[in-house]
């Protein structure tokens, strides 16, 4: 079987513009999302993820416009996450050309949403995004990894491994797993978290949070056993291209789709 690890640039979008927070504090503007998306397509990105962090509800439609423009100019699959609370929210994005929708807080609040989206559009459209932190206090769940919501601020008491299995049972086709301990640090993925969840479910895992070097991307696959690796800032500011990332990963023995 030819299984190629996917390299996925992630673009955080606020009111139609790309931003990337370092620990969600120091937000820098990295440009037009569709322009960046087309650049990543050319560099050999396998997919793209847009995370809508738009806070004000009157600007929520900007993400639908973004999905539409991306579908018109970019010829690789893309996922939209953030602010999706209902099947109708998902439908609006899929209808204009998004390939998948990612849900996070809304799934924790109402797990049936996973089932509803998977039933209506298929599991391949239903990505569940899980933000996890290592916890070791008395309330920490068995695996030591706890699910957080609301951008990593709200503790849920839910075990990340148990939650991953639950969303897969409900129909999630893929899990985007972010270490909130590592997100924005550039210290590399929490590969222990990634491997633990990857071993517990049989849907693809996208490792996220902490990439600072190209070696980290390879580690997500070789040590974290992830099916895909996601990164933002190392690509946005021109430090590295996706093609360089794949070259390094290939040199570390990871099968990747060569840039064509």
């Amino acid at each position: 079987m030819t299984a190629a690890a996917r390299v996925i640039p992630c673009l955080d979008v606020d009111a139609g513009r790309v931003v990337k927070g370092v620990n969600f504090v120091d937000i820098r503007d990295a440009g037009d999302p569709v322009e960046l998306a087309a650049r990543y397509d050319e560099q050999g990105a396998d997919e793209l993820v847009f995370l809508d962090i738009t806070a004000s509800s009157d600007q929520r439609d900007t993400i639908v416009d973004l999905a539409r423009r991306t579908a018109e100019e970019v010829y690789i699959p893309f996922t939209i996450g953030g602010g999706i609370r209902t099947v109708e929210d998902a439908r609006r994005l899929l209808r204009v050309g998004a390939d998948k929708t990612a849900i996070n807080t809304a799934a924790v609040r109402r797990p049936e949403l996973v089932k509803e989206i998977a039933t209506e559009f298929g599991s391949q459209c239903c990505v569940v995004s899980i933000d996890a932190r290592r916890m070791d206090d008395a309330d920490a769940p068995a695996s030591g990894f706890e699910v957080f919501t609301h951008g990593g601020r709200t503790r849920t008491g839910i075990d990340a491994v148990v939650w991953a299995q639950e969303v897969v049972r409900l129909g999630a086709g893929e899990i985007m797993l972010t270490s909130m301990d590592r997100d924005g640090t550039r210290d590399g993925f929490d590969v222990e978290l990634t491997a633990t969840v990857s071993d517990a479910v049989d849907v693809p895992i996208i490792a996220s949070g902490g990439v600072g070097t190209l070696e980290h991307l390879a580690e997500g696959v070789t040590e974290g056993r992830a099916d895909a690796v996601l990164a933002a800032s190392i690509f946005h500011f021109g430090e590295h291209t996706v093609a360089e990332a794949k070259e390094l990963m290939a040199a570390r023995g990871v099968t990747v789709r060569p840039p064509q």
Binding site: A4, R6, Q124, P204, R257, Q260
Partner: peptide, 28 residues
């Protein structure tokens, strides 16, 4: 194997089809 197959994969071409002309070697 994981089902669905949701990924890029390499094509093995059989015979000559005009649909696949001008493709790079090992198209994904």
């Amino acid at each position: 194997i994981k089902v669905p197959q949701m990924q890029w994969n390499r094509l093995d071409l059989h015979g000559e089809s005009p649909l696949f002309s001008k493709l790079p070697e090992d198209p994904w």
